[in-house]
Simulated assay, not measured.
Amino acid sequence: MFATRVFLKQTALGAILVAAALPPGPATAEEGFPFGFEMTLDGPPQPGSKRIPTLEIGDNGEAKLDLWCKSGTGQFSVAGNTVIFVPGRLQDRDCTPPRAQADDDLVAALGEATTWRRRGDQVSFTGTRTLRFRLNTN
């Protein structure tokens, strides 16, 4: 009886030590769709500007877009790795034609996205082209 109890304690202690030494498995909560987060487009600013587009996705999929020149809203719907983005109204601030076109192209690319993927702080939306965003974690 005493030998069995010692053996079980040693086995349990060994299992705890092995589990602590193993790398953590995938963190599903951290790898889920970034509801409730703000993210920044992973790319350079437009020439003559320091602004980089941001996207804030609320807990229910409502989105706020602050692009190179325009701002607006939209709605994300997600099922598994499938995504649908429906743009709302965009407010046009005195945009130069190239910046206005870049904003329209970005919104169109989000609207054409059919899948999404998250790896750590990077979120990708893929359709006719892939858009990469970095979560603002500061």
Score class of each variant (00 low, 15 high):
M1Y: 05
F2V: 10
F2H: 13
T4S: 15
T4D: 12
L8T: 10
Q10C: 12
T11N: 08
T11Q: 14
L13Y: 08
L13H: 03
L13P: 00
A15W: 01
I16F: 12
A21C: 12
P24V: 06
G25N: 07
A27M: 01
E30Y: 00
G32N: 09
G32I: 00
G36S: 09
G36P: 13
M39P: 02
L41E: 00
P44T: 12
P45H: 06
P45L: 09
Q46H: 08
K50Q: 10
R51N: 05
P53N: 09
P53R: 05
T54Q: 07
T54I: 13
T54C: 12
G58M: 06
N60T: 14
N60Y: 13
N60M: 12
K64M: 15
L65P: 06
L67G: 01
W68K: 02
W68P: 05
C69L: 08
K70T: 11
S71K: 10
G74L: 08
S77Q: 14
V78R: 06
V78G: 09
V83H: 04
I84A: 15
I84V: 15
F85R: 06
L90N: 07
L90K: 06
Q91T: 14
R93W: 00
D105Y: 05
L106D: 06
A108Q: 08
L110F: 14
E112T: 12
A113I: 04
A113H: 09
T115N: 11
R118V: 00
R119T: 05
D121S: 15
T128M: 08
T130C: 07
L131K: 01
L131Y: 05
R132Y: 03
N136V: 15
T137M: 13
